[in-house]
Amino acid sequence: MDQRLAELRDTAPAVPDRIPISLVVNGVEKRMEVAAWTTLLDLLRNTLDLPGTKKGCDHGQCGACTVLVDGRRINSCLTLAVMKDGCEVTTIEGLATGDVLHPMQQAFVDHDAYQCGYCTPGQICSAVGLISEGQARTREEIRDLMSGNICRCGAYPNIIAAIEGVLGGTAPAQAKEDPA
């Protein structure tokens, strides 16, 4: 191990390359130089001060970092920012229109589809991506296709209700509001 480390030290660059890129983040073009080793997630959270995108594991195992890149949901923690040069990125901060919540955001509020709120931005971005993918036809399919977003608080049934509400274009079921 030591020998390998020594070799590495000889060949490894002292600092990672800094590369100019341009990203459209929530509709605003951002030009900047980023270090090659900076993930899209860390760029959003630390550099662009958009911490709505969450770091839950940093290894693609929880989905909290889900954002939409060119309209598709991805894990921003496993994406180097430099590799998304020229892309459009939509984060949770970019979904609402002014003070009007995106229907999925509103549905999460109405259905209490969260508790601590930490997985919530990823859940919402994932749900928006799910709908645009158009592959989920049944409740079981929604459940499977939302399984890349872990919610430790266990809000899953309410998350499904929120998504079904938006898919069906229905208002939240009043029965849900007043159990027993």
């Binding site: 590495l8 060949t11 490894a12 660059p13 090659a36 993930t39 940093d58 290894h59 693609g60 894990n75 496993l78 994406t79 180097l80 430099v82 590799m83």
Partner: peptide, 25 residues
């Protein structure tokens, strides 16, 4: 590197330590 889902994960875990990445996307 293309999707990055495995390589970047392993680099964060310090399991893989490439000194150069060629983006083929």
């Amino acid at each position: 590197v293309a999707g990055g889902t495995n390589l970047l994960d392993l680099m964060k875990a310090d399991v893989m330590r490439p000194t150069r990445l060629v983006d083929i996307t």
